[in-house]
Design a protein around this nucleic acid. Structure first.
Length: 444
RNA sequence: GCCGCGGUAGUAUAGCCUGGACCAGUAUGCGGGCCUGUCAAGCCCGUGACCCGGGUUCAAAUCCCGGCCGCGGCGCCA
């Protein structure tokens, strides 16, 4: 290996290694050339370290090479670690320099100020933009959320599954999926692992989770939609009610909230982003039936939504504010959604069939989770399908899952990018996706 | 899909409403020079742009039409 340590590791051990030889490899972040002395700030994934080249103290050919450096050159610098009045408290007094790569033309983005460029420019040159620590921090948090998801559900007896992303029909209606040519047939990119996670429960795994891509063919123009994103999915067998599902969802968010203030790196990033830790009250996030939510919106905010209709995004924002003010909670479950706005596999309320055991979770006023109890009874499922006006033949393979013993079950799907966005207060969900796919963008 | 706003050097912007003094200003980058402790280093010189097409006008970055692209709101959703 050319590089054997990260800058952070050098700095952590710096106290004891003052005066010894170190090698720092990374990108040239900044150059401050004072003529006789040249400061080169090297950046890697873990931090910054300043190297100093002093004319007269380094060999002439090394100084000459140092004069050729430009921002974003990839370098390895060998030198002596010394205490210095820099932000890191140390610097490397350079002795040797190797330049592994030079930019071949002026940079389209400056890494240290990439955030001041427009988002579309940043995405066009995302591999440069992402070198900015404030940008990569988003992806460290995203990676952390995914890891917590795995850890939490694994610890609760869930099994990780991996389901097909090339499917024969859309999950709900087939209207919002991408067709793909599959040999001589048309297949579709999965818009959710919904059917297959239910399959896994029925196949006897009982509790399953998956982290996988989902594809939505809707031509949105908003700051909260992507045509490809990662879904955190769970499905749980042998539940009493959809409250069991909400308990498991809430358990995960509580884990995020607690660990984000316990773990230094995440805590520091959230402070950098100037955002409060996630707040969930001791007694749990409020669970508000949507019919109650209509009343709250009307009484507290004068906003009318016809009963039986879905909440609009303004309504969600207001309910987010309400939960924050009334319950001190960043999370609020809205429950018992109307049958009209839920997919056919949702279990309807026994006594009120126009309402369901479906819920959403709003995080700081944005929908980040959808879930509910599923209909596991074959005959009722068939009827639901018919009530939605869907064709039996299109879902026959799915209905068969329910013919030979299916436990009562439910689950939820969570948007990884939306959770990341809300945790960090990002203005656009595209910022939480390294290479977003949206209506216009399929490169890079 | 519907609606609104926008497109000026590599990047970010000023100028547009009220057409002419704009061969387009500023910052940063880039090229060159000075400088042996910088920290958004500083100073000097240089470099580089009006999205495309059509129209109005003596005159268009500026007004009008079309296209393309970008951003956002709605719907729908995670």
């Amino acid at each position: 290996m050319i590089k054997d340590v990260f800058i952070r590791d050098i700095l952590l051990k710096a106290e004891g290694f003052e005066g010894s030889r170190v090698r720092v490899c990374g990108w040239v972040h900044r150059i401050r050339d004072l003529g006789g002395v040249k400061f080169v700030i090297v950046r890697d994934r873990t931090g910054f370290l300043q190297a100093v080249f002093k004319r007269g103290e380094v060999p002439g050919d090394v100084m000459g090479l140092a004069d050729s450096l430009r921002e974003e050159c990839v370098v390895c610098i060998d030198g002596v670690l010394r205490r210095a009045p820099t932000r890191e408290g140390f610097e490397v007094s350079a002795l040797e320099l190797s330049v592994l790569s030079y930019p071949v033309e002026p940079l389209p983005l400056e890494v240290h100020s990439s955030l001041s460029a427009g988002l579309s420019t940043r995405l066009r040159y995302r591999w440069i933009d992402a070198r900015n620590p404030k940008v990569s921090a988003v992806f460290l948090v995203k990676s952390w959320v995914a890891r917590k998801f795995r850890e939490y559900y694994s610890s609760q007896g869930f099994v990780e599954i991996f389901t097909p992303k090339i499917v024969s029909s859309g999950t709900e209606s087939g209207a919002d999926v991408f067709p793909v040519l599959y040999f001589d047939r048309t297949a579709y990119l999965a818009q959710s692992p919904q059917f297959y996670k239910q399959f896994a429960v029925i196949a006897g795994f009982e509790r399953v989770f998956e982290i996988g891509p989902v594809f939505r063919a809707e031509p949105h123009h908003t700051v909260r939609h992507l045509n490809e994103y990662h879904s955190l999915d769970i499905e749980i067998g042998f539940i009493n009610s959809f409250h069991d599902v909400m308990n498991y969802v809430e358990g995960f968010f509580r884990k995020l909230a607690e660990d984000s203030v316990k773990e230094e790196e995440i805590k520091r990033i959230m402070e950098d982003f100037n955002i409060e830790p996630i707040k969930i009250p001791e007694e749990g996030a409020p669970r508000i039936p949507i019919r109650k939510a209509y009343e709250i919106l009307e009484e507290e905010y004068g906003k009318k939504i016809p009963p039986g209709e879905d909440l609009d995004s303004e309504g969600e924002k207001l309910l987010g504010n309400y939960a924050r003010e009334k319950y001190g909670s960043d999370l609020v479950f809205i429950t018992e959604y109307p049958w009209k706005v839920r997919p056919f596999y949702t279990m309807r309320k026994e006594d009120e069939p126009s309402w369901t055991y479906g819920f959403d979770l709003l995080m700081r006023g944005l929908e980040v989770v959808t879930g509910g109890q599923r209909e596991h009874r074959y005959e009722k499922l068939k009827k639901n399908l018919a009530d939605k006006g869907l064709r039996y033949e299109d879902f026959q393979y799915y209905l068969e899952f329910f013919k030979y013993g299916a436990p009562p079950h439910g689950g939820a799907g969570m948007g990884l990018e939306r959770i990341t966005m809300q945790m960090l207060g990002l203005q656009n969900v595209r910022e939480a996706r390294l290479l977003p796919r949206d209506t216009e963008r399929i490169t890079p």
